[in-house]
Amino acid sequence: MNTSVTSIKLVLLGEAAVGKSSIVLRFVSNDFAENKEPTIGAAFLTQRVNMGDHTIKFEIWDTAGQERFASLAPMYYRNAQAALVVYDVTKPQSFIKARHWVKELHEQASRDIIIALVGNKLDIIENGGERKVAREEAENLAQQEGLLFFETSAKSGSNVNEVFLGIGQKISLKPAQNAQDGGQGSSGLRINDDSRIDLRAPYGQSSAAGSCNC
């Protein structure tokens, strides 16, 4: 029996039209909207994932990808525990932008944010289109920056669920690590007993779990 639900704020970053929302729609409603109106908006969605005896509830925040809105992004990734940095494997410019997002997240986002680098639109290549971002290049970036890395197709659904499960798995590993560190890892990340990961917990502050709150 699952005994706990952990809420994860996940923010989507990436250039406009790389397929951020399509990935989320595929994940949440197994839908893909090409040349048709989507059945639901994808600006804010939630999805629960069962991970063994643990349930993770993803709260997915979409951001506007246009360059002119880039300075507003911190308002969205503030306190996020996970981020998907999406690029289009057929658009090198979108990969350059993805690099910028990764750098910015490392500099300004929550300290232990889990970042997944996602190369989307794999279906175009599978259908004979030209790949413009080498997989190795993206893998290198992921390795250097400590990111999860996936190539996906929101259109076919390929590898989409795996992105979120990968994040969920990494999140799920945190409590175990923290437990070994005496309830709070060196990262300062702790899992609250009743659901929410608190990346803002200061060092040296013991977990509130089990304490009387009355």
Binding site: N50, F149, F150, F164, L165
Partner: peptide, 20 residues
């Protein structure tokens, strides 16, 4: 070098069921 950590097979097999 591919940096993505190996994903637990059992989790992946049950992915469709896992996502509710």
């Amino acid at each position: 070098m591919f940096h993505t950590p190996p994903i637990n097979g059992s989790i992946m097999e049950s992915a469709p069921q896992a996502i509710r």
